[in-house]
């Protein structure tokens, strides 16, 4: 499989402490990457990814690192993106100044998180000022909403996205990170309710402030030490080499091609029952973690998928080509 974007999580610190945050970021959270680690990781990863995304925590709390990443990404000919909570757009002047600086540094895409949790710090007016300032640049803009789409924040996000003709993405709150206390436990471990679709997150690896590298920018950060979602960068391996090992992993390619539900068929009855009992909810992420955290499940999968390893890799290439064609057709 081909990676999409490498996330560089510059810091764990955020000026917000949202109850759904999968990275447990907050004003008191500590841990930053330093520039040497970042530069080495990006240069090493450059031939494995299409782009670099600055993320956190709140990246603009580490302004110098954030702008350094954007400039280096541009210098290497990769696509640059950033996820922010938009706290800096409280006045029109500040929104325009920072948007202008990001544009001048070469940022291709800015995604702003906005939902019922983020709107405690970022008002609808601030969101609109940010989007309005961004609309005057060449940057692609996106609003990222997380929640049940039944609150005022969703309607605000939808309204702003529609009026400025920008993308609004939605995602459910996941029972990981701080979100674990927010999502009610499932009434049943109904594995049939888990979506049976390709995963779009397993090709978006992330480097954390702790120097850990995960193949998935979702809820992988406390994964089992032997999980296939955890790539071996912490042991001194170059990030590019670690990404390369994931590209040909049978388990990762099957998650990419068909989603984690398809892995269940490869498991023994006993292991499948145990994995199902460990579901936190019926999201794909919960099932993926339940499988990949289970060492026996991983051993069974490695054994059963090994003979078809190259077929999974080849299918990933065909799937990616098909997905890219659909995206291009939609943009026309």
């Amino acid at each position: 499989m081909r990676y999409n974007t490498l996330g560089i999580q510059v810091t764990n610190t955020c000026n917000m402490a949202c109850p759904h945050c999968i990275t447990d970021s907050s004003p008191s959270a500590r841990g930053d990457l330093d520039w040497d680690e970042i530069e080495r990781a990006i240069r090493s990863a450059a031939s494995h990814v299409d782009g670099i995304c600055v993320t956190g925590g709140e990246p603009l709390l580490k302004r110098e690192l954030t702008f350094g990443i954007i400039r280096l990404t541009r210098e290497l000919g990769l696509r640059s993106s950033m996820v922010t909570n938009g706290y800096w757009s409280r006045t029109r002047q500040t929104a325009e100044r920072i948007m202008g600086e990001l544009d001048a540094a070469g940022l291709d895409k800015l995604a702003v998180s906005y939902d019922q949790f983020h709107d405690r710090l970022v008002s609808p007016v601030s969101l609109e000022q940010l989007v309005q300032a961004g609309a005057a640049t060449s940057m692609e803009l996106q609003i990222q909403y997380c929640g049940a789409r039944q609150d005022t924040a969703y309607h605000t996000a939808r309204d702003v996205a529609d009026r400025y003709d920008i993308e609004l993405t939605t995602a459910e709150v996941l029972p990981f990170g701080r979100g674990r206390d927010l999502v009610a436990a499932p009434v049943t471990n109904d594995v049939d309710a888990v979506p049976n679709e390709p995963c779009g997150v397993v090709t978006r690896p992330v480097l954390t402030p702790e120097g850990e590298l995960f193949t998935c920018c979702g809820p992988a950060r406390d994964a089992d030490s032997t999980s296939p979602l955890r790539l071996p960068a912490a042991s001194g391996t170059e990030v590019g080499d670690a990404l390369g090992s994931g590209e040909t992993s049978s388990i990762l390619n099957v998650i990419h091609n068909h989603g984690p539900r398809s892995l269940l068929d490869q498991l023994s009855e006993e292991t499948r029952a145990r994995v199902t009992e460990n579901l936190r909810d019926t999201s794909m992420c919960s099932l993926c973690r339940a499988i990949t955290d289970d060492r026996e499940a991983v051993a069974e999968l490695n054994a059963s998928l090994a003979s078809e390893q190259y077929r999974h890799v080849a299918l990933a290439a065909v799937l990616r080509q098909t997905q890219d064609t659909l995206t291009t057709d939609t943009e026309r």
Binding site: P198, G200, V201, C217, G218, C285, Q323
Partner: peptide, 13 residues
Amino acid sequence: PEVVTPHIHTVQN
């Protein structure tokens, strides 16, 4: 797969 659109279920990146 029948559905080729990837499921994006979280938004850190």
